[in-house]
Design a protein around this nucleic acid. Structure first.
Lengths: 129, 129
DNA sequence: CTACAACCTGTAGTAACTACAGGAGCAAGC
DNA sequence: GCTTGCTCCTGTAGTTACTACAGGTTGTAG
C-alpha cells in the first residue's frame, strides 16, 4: 500500500491530477489512513496508469472512463473497446489532416516572406484572404 | 456600416466571439449607434476576418493580436511576422508528430483487436503498459 | 521537540470560446 | 397605435482537463 506521492511517481499521474480524477469519479475513491491520508494498492496504481495511457493516446476523459470500466466486464466488452479505439483513431486522423492543411498554408505564407521592401506579403495575404 | 450580425456573417466570426474579441482587446471597440448598437466598417470586418484566418491557421490569440498590430507598422515588421509564422509552423509540426505517434499506437492496439475469445488484448495492453 | 516534508480541503485560474438569462430597440403588419 | 418577432445589449456561467495556490494537519528524522 502506497501514499499518494508514491502512487503519483509510479503511475506518472501528478498528485493534483490523481485527486482530480477521484473528484470526477474517473477512478474510485481509495481507502484512507486513520488520519485521512489516501492509500493506494498496486491495482489502484495500475488503474491510474491505465487512465494516463489512455490520455496519452488522446482519449477524452469520458472514453478513458468507459475503457477502464470495460476492464472488469466480460469478453463481450472487447468489441466495445475496439469500437472506442477506432473512433479515437478517426478523430486523431482528422486532427492530423487539419494540422497538415495548416502546415501547408503556413509554408505558403512563409515561402513569400521577406521578398519586396515596402510591403509584407505575409500580412497582405492574411488581410485579404 | 454594418450591424454586428452582418459583420459576423461577412467575417465568419460569430456574434458572441466578436464581442469576446472586443472584451479581450483583440480588436478595437467599434463605434455605437445612439441606441448603443455596435457598427462596423469594411475595415473592421477585414480585421475580424484577419483574426479568424490566424485562428484557422492555429495561431494563439496573443499571436493573432501581434500579427494584427503589425499590419499598421512599417516594413521592418515583416520579419517579425515571418518569425511568428515560422514559430507557429514549428508548433504545428510538433503537434502532427505527436498525433502520428498516437495514430501508430492506436493502430497497433486495433490490429490485435477481436482475436481470442476470453481475453481482450486491447484492454490487456492498456492495463499493462 | 523542533524542523520540514508530505498530506489534506477547497477555491481559482488557464485557452478560447459558447450558451444562456433577462432586458431593450427596431421594422412590419394590422 | 400596438403587437409580433427578430436583433441587439450586458453580464454571468459553463466547457476540457488540468494546474496552482492558500491555509491547515500529519508524519518523520535528527
Amino acid at each position: 500500500m502506497y501514499s499518494i506521492g508514491v502512487a503519483a511517481e509510479r503511475s506518472g499521474v501528478t498528485i493534483e491530477t490523481i485527486r482530480y480524477y477521484e473528484r470526477e469519479g474517473i477512478v474510485s475513491k481509495p481507502d484512507r489512513t486513520s488520519a485521512g491520508h489516501r492509500i493506494y494498492s498496486d491495482d489502484g496504481i495500475a488503474r491510474l496508469r491505465f487512465v494516463k495511457r489512455c490520455r496519452d493516446l488522446g482519449f477524452p476523459i469520458p472514453e478513458a472512463k468507459s475503457l477502464l470500466s470495460l476492464t472488469d466486464g466480460s469478453q463481450t466488452s472487447c468489441s466495445s473497446a475496439c469500437a472506442i479505439a477506432e473512433e479515437q483513431r478517426g478523430l486523431v486522423r482528422n486532427k492530423i489532416a487539419d494540422l497538415k492543411r495548416m502546415e501547408t498554408e503556413l509554408s505558403e505564407l512563409i515561402g513569400q516572406c521577406p521578398d519586396s521592401e515596402d510591403t509584407c506579403p505575409i500580412l497582405e495575404d492574411l488581410l485579404s484572404s
